[in-house]
Design a protein around this nucleic acid. Sequence first.
DNA 1: GCCAACGTTGGC
DNA 2: GCCAACGTTGGC
Length: 163
Amino acid sequence: MHLIVRVKDRVNYWLMKSEPEVYGIGNLERDRTTIWDGVRNYQARNFLKSMQVGDVAFFYHSNTNPPGIVGLMQIVAAQVVDPSQFDPDGDYYDPKSTPTAPRWHTVKVEFVRTFSNVITLATLRDRFTPAELLVVKQGNRLSVMPILDRVAEEILELSPAKG
DNA sequence: GCCAACGTTGGC
DNA sequence: GCCAACGTTGGC
C-alpha cells in the first residue's frame, strides 16, 4: 500500500523549559537570541533535533512560583551543535563528545514577546489534560516537548502581548 | 524543605 | 537484560 504524503509548509509548536534563576524570558529579551544549550536528556534532544527554522516555542519558567508559560520565541537556527558539551570546565561537559562527533544538538532561538501575564501551570491544568499537553502531567520532567496546534492556538488566545 | 516521578548507572 | 540504587527535576 502506498501512502501519498503531502509535505506542506507548516509551523510546529513547542514548549521549552528554563529556570528563570538560570535563564529567564528577561534574559532572552535582553540577548534577543540565544543558543538553547545544556539539554542532556535524549528525548528532549530528539525533539530539539526535529525543530525547524520558523517553528514557534513557548517559553516556560520552571522551578519558580508560579511556574508557567511566560512568552514566545521562534527557532532561527536548527541542528546547532551545542558548544557547552566541549567545555571541560562547564556544567554540561560531555567527555564522550568531540567536535567531529558531537552528541548534543540544539537550536538557536529568538525573542518574540513576553506575555502580559504568566499562563500558570494551574491554568494549563484547568484547560488541558495530560494527553493534550504533556507539561501538565504530574511528575513530568521533560524540558522540551511538542505542542498540538489546537492547544497552541488556545494558549495564544490567552496571551495578549505586553504593553 | 519535602518528596513524587522518573531517567541513568552499574552490578550481576 | 534486569533491576536496585542513586541522582535530578520540579511542583508544592
